[in-house]
Design a protein around this nucleic acid. Structure first.
Length: 757
DNA sequence: GGTAAGACTTGGCGCTATTAAG
DNA sequence: CTTAATAGCGCCAAGTCTTACC
């Protein structure tokens, strides 16, 4: 969890001070009540300075048509040609540039990314074969003909390759090494054979996500195990035997005693209220105050239990592992259109206490155990329906192939639906991911025109248009999230459209820059966004206007919503929504930075640092922060110590070299010459080691509060990375681990070194 | 048009397995 | 070999966006 923590974390540079609540206060009723700023401003439309053509308005009309140079933002945007500004509206744009690339309704992507003509034929054949198979009857998990044949074929060719390689290897390598290598490669080939290149096939007809779907249903968490009788719960100092239900909930709290949030009032109140609800009448009568409850014995019991588990022998651990593997094998996969696919989260969420992030009003509430009677199963009609646990039945069984989930249930905290879905390595997820990047690439072709358009909107007559223009500018330039309206019973966080007046401060001049906007708000997951950005004069003026006559807790963009924004974006380019800008800007930044930072003669390590830096630029843009690792200071100190030592060694080597040179000059001989060479080599080696360590230090320091994972996994077109690897002879394993490689298998397979985002 | 429900993506954290260091 | 650091991975919360409904 992020301790309320996160904002108070000492290693967290952007942290708010405990008393500093200006921008993260809980939403008050007034700001969400019927006197919402939106209504208020609708009434005052007649006073709208924009509509009245105020003095300010005239000022702006006279502004020079040249935009101020885009002052150092953390990314470089393509320069927008101001001279091109015409009265193009978003709708006009749509008609104007008739798709540069043709959108393929079947694959959901543009022609440019589709397989070549003859591949299309293959795709058709395959899909008709599939149809045939589906007609033939039920797909059986254990006997899938097609897959069986596929496996056979590839393993045969693998054998062939292997024997060839072995012959060569035998000559060159000693036996032990050779054996190990062969084993490794055989395994690799085996993995390869199991992979299905779905990206070489066609897609289903519109809206259909699958034709057949078979699975075993979700895996339920283990039943509650009673506490041993010698582990008491104490109320007012006296042991009390709780009912099973009450005891279970008590253990949830007891397990968390170490966490700081159990000291929070909201958490305690929510817990206590929900706990009392599961108590028996008698228990409720007795247990009236949380402060009188003593869970320490229970807590101790669980600590000891986990200690015990840690101290198990290797064999015992092995047995446990195998049992877990068996469950994964049984429940972790499904059969989708005849292909075995990994499920993402086949385990139902166990009961416990809800811990939202940030200042969540519902923290501490009881998250109830999910019963089979709560679960809806989704599978195909012609297939064996998963068995509910003995003595139970499912809530419902449905056969809806327009959705991708296998099971769903309603979670009791917010009443939201939760799903069991496939792993990112699956076709269903992969295809969607691919499509996402294709949409972003399409935006690349349109972005100049779209930028021209939203700049035009800055001087529009209508307030709504101006707000749209500025909001879009933030989304594009700063990679802000769209910012949907949120329920009141969640933490108070915002995105672009939900920004409030209190979240920004305007500075006409600051630190030698003009028109600086200071952002300070809590975004998704209550991560603080703090940034000072110079903006264009027109944007600054508009912001001033938007803030006029508003209270701090009023919406900055009171005339627009994410729905409106996305509607407009969709008109400008099919498939375009606010979040596409994040993908587009992230991927564009990566490609630019990689080009800029990578030099041919770099070592692999240097190239990797360059890659990390490019990745980091993106993470900073997207504000992907993390708490500094707990051991950061310590490990940094250790590294610095190492560097110091290495420096000393380098100094010593330098001196020795000097001495050797001097000796050589004074008494030249073959031996002294050799010595000089030797010392030179030693110095070079040490210097390189020092450089490497310093690189490591920089990398780590720069990464202290930046999380690279999210952008790597969700925002960077993997084909950029794959192309970079191929071009620079960096093994793809260096940047993508096994999970990444499984998710991005499509990209690794299809991108060559020439891929351009 | 506005809202709620539904479906799917994005996100940081912390546990666990693996690797490196001692 | 043990211990410490790091990477990998699962978890599940919290977003975005679409669809359904009034």
């Amino acid at each position: 969890m992020r301790p309320q923590g996160k904002t108070e974390h000492e290693g967290y540079e952007l942290a708010l001070l405990p008393g500093e609540t200006k921008n993260c206060k809980l939403r008050t009723n007034s700001s969400k009540s019927s006197h919402s700023p939106k209504d208020r401003h609708k009434i005052t439309d007649d006073k709208d300075p924009v509509l009245q053509g105020s003095r300010a308005e005239k000022d702006w009309k006279n502004k020079s048509s040249k935009c101020s140079p885009d002052v150092k933002s953390n990314k470089i945007h393509a320069k927008v040609k101001q001279t091109d500004i015409s009265h193009t509206s978003l709708t006009a744009l749509k008609e104007e540039d008739v798709e540069e690339q043709i959108f393929d309704p079947i694959s959901g992507c543009t022609q440019a990314c589709l397989p070549a003509e003859n591949d299309l034929e293959v795709r058709k054949e395959k899909s008709s074969a599939e149809k045939k198979r589906d007609k033939e009857g039920t797909v059986n998990i254990t006997k899938d003909k097609t897959q069986g044949q596929k496996k056979k074929r590839s393993s045969h060719s693998t054998e062939h390759n292997e024997s060839k390689k072995n012959k060569k290897a035998k000559r060159e390598e000693d036996e032990d090494k050779e054996k190990r290598k062969a084993k490794g490669e055989a395994k690799k080939a085996e993995d390869e054979a199991g992979k299905w290149k779905w990206w070489e096939e066609g897609k289903h007809a519109d809206g259909q996500k699958w034709k057949s779907l078979e699975h075993k249903g979700p895996l339920f968490p283990p039943e509650y195990e009673l506490l041993p009788s010698n582990v008491p719960f104490l109320y007012d100092g006296k042991p009390v035997q709780l009912s099973v239900a009450a005891e279970e909930v008590a253990t949830f709290y007891a397990k968390m005693l170490d966490h700081e949030y159990t000291t929070k009032e909201t958490f305690q109140n929510n817990f206590f209220t929900d706990w009392r609800e599961v108590m028996t009448e008698d228990e409720r009568k007795l247990i009236k105050k949380l402060s009188k409850c003593d869970f320490s014995k229970i807590h101790k019991y669980f600590v000891e239990k986990s200690e015990e588990k840690k101290n198990m022998t290797k064999e015992e651990k092995q047995v446990l592992k195998e049992e877990a593997n068996k469950l994964t094998e049984e429940y972790g996969y499904c059969l989708l259109d005849g292909h075995k696919e990994k499920i993402g989260n086949f385990r139902l969420e166990p009961p416990g206490l809800f811990r939202g992030r940030g200042e969540h009003p519902k923290m501490g509430k009881l998250k109830k155990r999910v019963q089979p009677e709560d679960v809806i199963i989704n599978c195909s009609q012609d297939v064996k329906v998963p068995e509910p646990p003995a003595g139970h039945r499912w809530k419902r069984i449905q056969h809806d192939n327009t959705v991708t989930w296998l099971a769903s249930w309603v979670e009791n905290i917010h009443g939201h639906i939760k799903y069991i879905m496939l792993n990112p390595s699956s076709k269903l997820k992969g295809e969607k991911d691919w499509q996402k990047y294709e949409t972003a690439r399409k935006l690349k072709l349109r972005v100049d025109a779209i930028r021209r358009e939203y700049r035009m909107a800055w001087t529009a007559r209508e307030m709504k248009q101006r707000q749209r223009g500025v909001a879009l500018y933030f989304i594009d330039k700063l990679a802000l999230r769209a910012g949907n309206e949120k329920d009141d019973d969640t933490a108070d966080t915002v995105g672009c459209c939900s920004l409030r007046v209190e979240h920004i401060t305007l500075h006409q001049h600051q630190d030698g820059q003009d028109y600086v906007v200071e952002f300070d708000f809590l975004g998704k997951d209550s991560i603080r966004y703090y940034n000072k950005v110079p903006v264009e004069k027109q944007v600054f003026k508009n912001l001033k206007l938007f803030m006029e006559n508003k209270d701090p807790e009023d919406d900055l963009f009171d005339r627009i919503s994410t729905v409106y924004l996305n509607k407009k974006l969709n008109e400008a380019m099919p498939g375009l929504t606010a979040k596409v800008f994040r993908t587009f800007n992230a991927s564009t930044t990566l490609q630019e930075q990689l080009d800029k930072l990578t030099v041919d003669d770099m070592t692999v390590e240097e190239k990797l640092l360059a890659y990390n830096r490019a990745n980091r630029a993106v993470a900073i843009l997207c504000n992907h922060q993390r708490a500094a690792p707990k051991t950061f200071e310590k490990s940094m100190l250790a590294l610095q110590e190492k560097i110091k030592k290495k420096k000393e060694e380098v100094e010593k080597a330098k001196k020795e070299l000097k001495q050797a040179k001097k000796d050589h000059r004074e008494q030249p001989s073959e031996k002294s010459k050799k010595l000089v060479e030797k010392k030179e080599k030693a110095l070079k080696r040490l210097s390189e080691q020092l450089k490497k360590l310093k690189l490591q230090e920089t990398d780590r320091e720069e990464n202290k509060v930046i999380a690279l994972g999210t952008s790597k996994l969700n925002y960077l077109d993997p084909r950029i990375s794959v192309a970079w690897c191929k071009k620079n002879n960096v093994p793809v394993e260096k940047i993508y681990n096994k999970t990444h490689r499984a998710k991005f298998a499509w990209a690794i397979d299809m991108a060559d070194e020439n891929f351009q985002f």
